[in-house]
């Protein structure tokens, strides 16, 4: 529980830093182009990568805060308290499944030495954020399934 909270705080810091850097890069590019007559080469590509990073971390933060949209109209069909825990267990399994394919996605990207043009950066180390976000979501749902009280508390983080 403590570990999960620490994890979410770390994720929040990474996401906020990524957005701060995105903003600064875009502003620096505009400033450099309009006032120094020179584009900041690769600023846009870097800003996109940073915002993808923030967005993917946001996905798992949203899992922790239970912020994902969830249609509730069918909740009454199985109106038992254990359904919540079962649901979390299934979510954990599904996210773990997607994490598995996300790892495969990164491995493929590495095999094909996929890169970001202009900044000439090898892409796969950045793409690790995709399996990370999926796996981190899976872990959170798994903890919720084991310990519904944790879900209550983390939702307020």
């Amino acid at each position: 529980m403590k570990i999960l909270r620490l994890l979410m705080q770390t994720e929040a810091i990474v996401a906020a830093l990524a957005y701060a850097a995105t903003t600064l890069l875009l502003l620096a590019d505009v400033f450099s182009r309009e006032f120094l007559s020179r584009s900041l080469w690769g600023a846009q590509q870097s800003a996109i990568l940073l915002s993808i990073l923030a967005g993917m971390i946001g996905l798992t933060l949203a899992t922790g805060r239970q912020a994902h949209f969830r249609p509730e109209f069918a909740d009454g069909i199985l109106a038992f308290s254990w359904v919540d825990r079962l649901g979390d267990l299934i979510s954990a399994i599904l996210f773990a499944g997607f994490a598995y394919f996300a790892v495969e996605f990164v491995v493929e990207s590495r095999n094909f030495s996929d890169r970001v043009p202009v900044i000439n950066l090898t892409l796969w180390p950045v793409q690790i954020v995709v399996p990370y976000a999926m796996a981190s979501s899976a872990i959170k749902h798994f903890v919720f399934a084991l310990n519904p009280a944790a879900k209550e508390q983390l939702g307020r983080t």
Partner: peptide
Amino acid sequence: AATTSDEAFARRLGAVGVP
């Protein structure tokens, strides 16, 4: 275009190359 050669050429021309 977002290529290193276009960037280099724009710089040569003294233009502000916007990719």
